[in-house]
């Protein structure tokens, strides 16, 4: 059981860290728009493509 004395605080610390990060993000309004980011994901590959077109 001695491993638990290491694992338990570590797990709790990790959980605490992510919860704090979540609260920070929510407070900054990162989750205000839940719809558009799902679509924006699809646009990832575009910049290179349009770059070449603009030259043409």
């Amino acid at each position: 059981m001695s491993v638990i004395t290491v694992m338990l605080p570590l797990a709790l610390l990790l959980g605490f860290g992510f919860t704090a990060a979540f609260i920070w993000m929510a407070a900054k309004g990162q989750y205000d728009d839940l719809e558009t980011p799902a679509y924006r994901l699809l646009l990832e590959e575009e910049p290179a493509e349009t770059g070449s077109q603009r030259k043409a």
Partner: peptide, 18 residues
């Protein structure tokens, strides 16, 4: 208010899991 509520949800979720 939405943000505050989301924080409550997230916090409760994290605590529940642990």
């Amino acid at each position: 208010e939405n943000r505050r509520m989301l924080i409550r949800v997230g916090l409760s979720g994290a605590c529940t899991g642990n």
